[in-house]
Design a protein around this nucleic acid. Structure first.
Length: 289
DNA sequence: CGGGACTCCTGAGGGC
DNA sequence: TGCCCTCAGGAGTCCC
């Protein structure tokens, strides 16, 4: 699923529901995620309180008790369900058209909380992971070491990007998807950002002008903020009774629009699809230079 | 260091 | 209905 806006929406939702609750028990249905879930660490969660839930890039950071950090990445299909006291289910992220009853077979890890509440980690493809650290050495973890700045922070500015682009010669799409350049963008949002900035995805960063850099910065922040406001994007048209559903996908300008007319009314061109670094790339030949 | 290919896994959707 | 193919919002590793 999940790029920065979706993970942020999950974070806010879980924070509202589960922060400060005590974990009573954890059940591992299938711990063979991207990295094997450590049973010993899971066992240690019993009786401990979820103190804090944060996001960095596309990672969720749960501070448990005061000395344990549980780091979660959702991969492509990871999501959390929160089950409240009334057994009502809140889905915190969205992917695939799943049968409400059948999808329980992808419930990989279940956190039983106080008052019969639960957090379920559900992940079809098992590209996500759950890892544990001591608070002391968490900051040095291998996943965070090379991450670039948060795109919504002041550190992600024209000066930074200009400097990062200099002396590199990759395509602008490739480099924006690289978490070392900026942390949290993925395929959908980079496609959208490049369309809004009127830059061809395979343009080499050497040829990006100052004006274009400014546009990239502004459009990155705008797209992410707009999407967060709408609860992120839900592709594959998931429909479910409970939980809120992100609606930003309705506002995609290019992603998934191959063969459709460019949304710029002054343009009569058709959205093209190609591949960059093996990822689907959508663009308008006329609007993007 | 850069860049491409490949890998993990499971399902949806299209063509025949 | 079934089979086969391609594709899917991520990111790590290997190899040149």
């Amino acid at each position: 699923m999940p790029e920065l806006p979706e993970v942020e929406v999950v974070k806010r939702s879980l924070e509202k529901k589960a922060q400060n609750l005590i974990i009573k028990k954890v059940k591992i249905n299938d711990g063979n995620l991207r990295y094997k879930v450590n049973k010993y660490q899971i066992l240690k969660l019993r009786g401990r309180r979820i103190k804090k839930i944060e996001r960095r890039s596309k990672y969720l950071i749960f501070t448990i008790h005061k000395d344990t950090v549980m780091l979660v990445h959702l991969g492509m299909t990871g999501k959390f369900f929160f089950i409240d006291k009334m057994n009502k289910r809140f889905k915190t992220s969205f992917y695939y058209k799943l049968d409400e009853n059948k999808d329980t077979k992808f419930n990989r890890v279940i956190f039983f909380l106080q008052n019969n509440q639960k957090i379920i980690y559900n992940d079809i493809r098992k590209f996500g992971f759950i890892k544990f650290y001591n608070s002391n050495d968490f900051e040095k973890n291998s996943h965070f070491r090379k991450l670039g700045p948060e795109p919504l922070s002041n550190k992600f500015n024209s000066k930074y990007l200009k400097n990062y682009f200099s002396n590199r010669k990759r395509t602008v799409k490739d480099i924006l998807m690289d978490q070392k350049c900026v942390a949290g963008l993925g395929n959908i949002y980079v496609n959208e950002i490049l369309y809004l900035s009127k830059i061809k995805p395979f343009k080499n960063v050497k040829k990006i002008s100052n004006n274009e850099i400014t546009k990239l910065i502004l459009n990155t922040k705008k797209v992410l903020e707009d999407s967060i406001k709408l609860g992120g994007s839900s592709i594959k048209n998931f429909s479910s009774g409970d939980g809120k559903k992100g609606t930003f996908q309705q506002f995609f300008k290019v992603y998934g629009r191959k063969g459709e007319k460019c949304t710029n009314i002054a343009c009569d061109s058709i959205i093209q699809r190609t591949t960059i670094s093996n990822r689907a790339t959508f663009f308008c030949e006329k609007c993007q230079k």
